[in-house]
Design a protein around this nucleic acid. Sequence first.
DNA 1: AACGTATTCATTGCATGCAATGCATGTCAA
DNA 2: TTGACATGCATTGCATGCAATGAATACGTT
Lengths: 239, 239
Amino acid sequence: MYTRRMAVSSDSQPGSAHAVYVALRHRFAEGRYAPGQRLTEATVAADLGVSRTPVREAIGRLLAEGLVVPAARGVAVAALTAAEAEHLFVLRATLEALAAELAATRQARGQLAPADIDALDQAVDAVEAAVQTHDAHASAQANLALHRAIGAAAGNPFLEDTLHRVWDRIAVTTVANLDDPHWAGAITEQHRAIVAGIRAGDPAAAGRAAKAHIEAAGRAYKRAPENEPRAGAAKQPTR
Amino acid sequence: MYTRRMAVSSDSQPGSAHAVYVALRHRFAEGRYAPGQRLTEATVAADLGVSRTPVREAIGRLLAEGLVVPAARGVAVAALTAAEAEHLFVLRATLEALAAELAATRQARGQLAPADIDALDQAVDAVEAAVQTHDAHASAQANLALHRAIGAAAGNPFLEDTLHRVWDRIAVTTVANLDDPHWAGAITEQHRAIVAGIRAGDPAAAGRAAKAHIEAAGRAYKRAPENEPRAGAAKQPTR
DNA sequence: AACGTATTCATTGCATGCAATGCATGTCAA
DNA sequence: TTGACATGCATTGCATGCAATGAATACGTT
C-alpha cells in the first residue's frame, strides 16, 4: 500500500507530510469532512496512501491552527460556534480594513502596478458573474480570490498570512451567504467601493469600505439559518 | 537514551512533541539559539532526550509559524530583516489597537471585572519598576505580561492567538528597546494612556493610544542599532 | 593552480514496530 | 433492570530502521 502516491495538487513544497496537510485542508474547505467528525491517523493514512507518520505531522499542524480539535481518541474536525464566528468576523473586519488601507497607501505611492488594480476590478466582476449564476462553490472561489488579491496588494506578508488563517477558519461562509438575497445584491457594490478606495489611493476610504463589507458579511452569516446547526455535522464532542 | 525525560515546564498539554515545541520556543525567546543558526533533528533530539519523531513534529510546527525557515539541510532559526520587522509592527499596531478597543468596549458594557482592570494597572506599574532596574529580561517579561493581559481582556480568542504569534515572531524586541532612553521614558506614560482608555470604557481612545504605543515601539526598534546585524547571528542562509 | 567530476557522508523523510492509554463493551452481582 | 467492574481493543505516541537526497569533500584532469 505504501507505494501509492496521492494526487498532490500544484503545491510547490515537497514532502508527504505537507501534501497530507494540504489535502486535509482542501477536504475541510470542500466540506468533505463534516465538522465534528472524528479523524483517526490510520484512516487518513489509508485514504491518502501514506504511513501514519506524515499524517501525524499534518494533524499536529492542523491542531495548532485550530482546524481540528482534540477529541476522545485523536482529533475531530473543528466546528464553528456562533460566538466563534462572531469573534472571527471582528478580527477579519479589522484585518481586511488594514489590508485595504495598505493597498491604497501603496497605490498612492505608486507602488502598485496598474495591472494589479485592473486585476482587482476583474476579480470584482468575476464575483458578480459567479453570484448571478447561483453557483455557490464558484462564487465562494471568486470571492476568496478577490479578497486574496487585496491581501496581496497590501504587500505585508504577515498580514496576508494572518488573513489566510482567518479565511481558512471561516471557510464555507460565503456559500451559505449566497442564499441571502440582500447580501447577494449588496456584495458587488461593496466590493467596488473597496477597490475604488484603493484605486483612488485613499486609505481611509478603502479601509472603511472593507470594514463595512466584512461587518455586513458577518451579519449575513449570522442570519443564515444553516450556519448554526451546520449540515451533516456528526455528534460534537462536549468541548 | 530513550527513557530520559526532559524537564517539561508547567505546560498542561501532554506529549513529548509538544514539550519539544515549547522547549524550542523558550530557547528562541531566550536567545539561546542565535538567528540563522542551523538546527538538526538529531541534535535537538539528543539535547532534549527524545527521539527524532517528536522533534520532527515540533520543527514542522515552528516551520509553519515561520519561527524557523528551511535551510540547506534542515532548518535554521528565523532572523528578522528590517523590512519584516516593519511589517510586523504595522500588523501589531492594528491588532493591539483592536484589542484595546474591544477591552474598552467590554468595560463599557460592564463585562470586565474591576479586578481585571486593577490587574492592568498593576502590570503597568510592574513594567515601570522593571524598566527602572535596567533589567532587560525582566522588563521584557513584564511588558509582555501587560500586553498579554490587554489581549486577554479583549475577550476574542482568535485575536489573542494572532497577537501571540506576532509577539513570538518579534520576541526580543523590548530587550533592545530598553537601551533607548527616549523609549524607556515614554513607555509607562503610553501604557497608562491605554489602560486609562480601557478603564474609561472609551474604545476610540484606548485604540488610539495602543496604536500610537506600538508605532512608537516600532520606531524605537528601528533606531536600535543592534537590531539589524543581530548579535551572535551565524551566517544567514541566502533566503 | 583552477576547474570539473566522482564519492562520501551527514541528514532528512517515511514506514513500521511496540508499548501505553483509556474508551467501550460485555459480564456479573444486587 | 441497573450499576460496578473487568477486559479487550482501537488508537495514539514514540523510537528506530532504511532508503533517498544533496551538500561537502576529495580527487583527477587540463
